[in-house]
Simulated assay, not measured.
Amino acid sequence: MAHKQIKYSDQELFLLIKNCQRNNFNYIYDSYSPLLYGLLVGAGLSKSYSCEILEQTFVNIWKNDTPICVSDKTFTNWIIKILLRSVREYLTSNDRKFKISFVKSGALSIEFLDV
């Protein structure tokens, strides 16, 4: 039997995060990890780096230490902001010099400056 995918508004997704319940977190992970992983691999990061950064991103989401700002506008913007912070933290901790940007298509671009 196929599971019916529940659709939440951005406001409801923010509330799911605020409630810090395991089921809510699992829903967020299942719904957004493919997008975030795709951005990382699409930016040219290795699968290993991508998996580690994705894990750290969801640890940061679970810790709920990134305030939700009106400027985030959507849940997707907010979660990508956390992903970018996780990329910076991970690459900096590995002594990598890099530049992060988005290209017109919306893809993430990570240019390594130390190669």
Rank of each mutant, 00 (worst) to 15 (best):
M1L: 11
A2D: 10
A2T: 08
A2S: 09
H3V: 09
K4H: 14
K4V: 02
Q5G: 06
K7L: 13
K7D: 13
S9I: 02
Q11S: 05
Q11V: 01
E12Y: 01
L13I: 01
L15M: 05
I17M: 09
K18Y: 07
K18D: 05
C20D: 14
C20P: 03
C20W: 15
C20I: 01
N23G: 08
N24M: 01
F25Y: 13
N26R: 06
I28K: 01
Y29P: 01
Y29K: 02
D30V: 03
D30R: 13
D30A: 08
Y32I: 04
S33H: 11
P34D: 04
P34S: 04
L35M: 06
L35P: 02
L36K: 03
L36D: 02
Y37T: 00
G38C: 07
L39Q: 09
L39K: 10
G42I: 01
G44K: 13
L45S: 05
K47T: 09
S48L: 13
S48W: 14
S48T: 12
Y49S: 04
E52Y: 10
I53R: 12
Q56H: 14
T57P: 05
T57M: 06
N60V: 00
W62G: 03
W62L: 12
K63T: 04
K63E: 10
P67E: 10
P67A: 09
I68H: 04
I68V: 09
C69D: 13
V70P: 04
S71W: 11
S71T: 08
T74G: 07
F75P: 01
W78Y: 15
W78E: 00
I80N: 10
K81N: 14
K81R: 12
L83A: 06
L84M: 04
R85T: 02
R88S: 09
L91H: 07
L91T: 01
L91V: 05
S93M: 11
K97N: 15
F98P: 03
K99L: 08
I100Q: 11
I100Y: 10
K104F: 07
S105K: 05
L108I: 00
I110S: 09
I110T: 06
F112Q: 06
L113S: 08
D114S: 07
V115A: 11
V115Q: 09
V115G: 11
